[in-house]
């Protein structure tokens, strides 16, 4: 029963969200059936669509994990966007200049990208530890700094002279990651990271301390956790995951170079996924796939109907809000009913 209820809630909330969105589709003078049909057809309908959904989901899985691991530990890392961008930029630049056999270079580039993300998050960790600056605002501000700094690097020092927009040069073709039956290898890396995160959170003592810190920081301190070191570790790990997402997008995406706007909305999508997943590791994986499905289906939706693909951005936020609203609403309703029942017993 404990497992069934959240799943039912989720289904209820998603159905409700799609109904709300249907009203807006009707306002757009389109048929919701056609729109949702196209969404399904291009998101899940065939192996080709499904593999594309998995490919669209891999950065989301990683940024989602990044947010989940942080929020689970009570560390408000909202800097996924900036960490992602640094991961992507470092990977893209080194991918042009590094000369190594590809079996060595590809994993190295991915890890270096992750480390770049970790370093950027480490800056926030440094601020937090040295100056007690709240990571909530500092990671946010670092996002803007990362945005402008990477853009500067892609516009001046590492600009591809043949490009029309600020972009770095194409990485060496032998570093392109491939796929298995149309599914990018990066997806499997992300899948592996899901297990790694689960193992970290539930099977290591650092993970245990981190979770305790998320439940109650004071309790963790009194219980003997080194809260400062744990926060630093979580920020670094969380940054690594976001940076890895950026690096993998360069290695296994479609562009293979750093361009303006490559970060898209991956950072905030990750935050939304973590919120929907209630910071659970496997739930994060599930919701990231769901988001990937929406994003991938959106292309088909625009192709088949008159509804533009941007509609999915709106749909996502509606789903997030109705999901958390329904979940919290049901919880407070059951609490209220239980309180009333107990009161009834007492009064009688």
């Amino acid at each position: 029963m404990n497992h069934v209820r959240p799943i039912l809630q989720t289904i209820l909330a998603i159905v409700f969200a799609f109904l709300v969105a249907a009203i807006f589709i009707l306002l757009h003078r389109s048929s919701p059936f056609e729109v949702y049909g196209a969404l399904y057809q291009y998101g899940l309908g065939s192996w080709f669509s499904f593999s594309n959904t998995l490919n669209a989901a891999f950065p989301l899985i990683l940024t989602g994990l990044s947010a989940s691991i942080a929020f689970m530990s009570g560390v408000v890392n909202l800097g996924q966007h900036g960490q992602f961008l640094w991961g992507a930029l470092v990977c893209a630049v080194l991918g042009v200049y590094l000369r190594l056999p590809s079996w060595l270079a590809v994993p190295l580039l991915a890890i270096l990208g992750g480390l770049a993300g970790a370093a950027w998050a480490g800056l926030a960790a440094f601020f937090k530890r040295r100056y007690r600056m709240d990571e909530f605002i500092s990671t946010l501000m670092l996002n803007f700094l990362a945005e402008y700094m990477t853009l500067y690097l892609a516009t001046y020092p590492f600009l591809d002279p043949k490009a029309y927009v600020p972009a770095t040069r194409l990485i060496r073709p032998e570093y392109f990651m491939t796929g298995v039956f149309g599914v990018n290898v990066a997806f499997f890396v992300a899948f592996f990271m899901v297990f790694l995160c689960w193992w970290f959170a539930w099977r290591t003592w650092q993970g245990y301390e981190a979770r305790m810190m998320g439940y109650n920081k004071l309790f963790a301190t009194v219980g003997g956790c080194d809260v400062e070191s744990d926060t630093t570790l979580i920020l670094l790990f969380s940054g690594f995951l976001s940076g890895l997402a950026g690096a993998l997008l360069i290695l296994n995406g479609t562009q293979h170079r750093f361009t303006k706007g490559i970060g898209a909305n991956f950072g905030w999508d990750g935050v939304m996924i973590a919120i929907m997943a209630n910071n659970g590791v496997f739930q994060t994986f599930f919701y990231a796939l769901f988001m990937g499905f929406l994003k991938n289906g959106a292309v088909g939706m625009e192709f088949e109907t008159s509804v533009p693909s941007e509609f999915v951005m709106f749909l996502q936020s509606i789903i997030v809000l109705t999901l958390v609203g329904t979940r919290s609403g049901i919880a407070s309703l059951t609490d209220w009913l239980r309180a009333k029942r107990e009161l009834g017993k007492l009064v009688k």
């Binding site: 905030w268 951005m313 996502q316 936020s317 509606i318 997030v320």
Partner: peptide, 9 residues
Amino acid sequence: IGINMLALG
């Protein structure tokens, strides 16, 4: 955060 995303979307 949800409202910010809603407005952006």
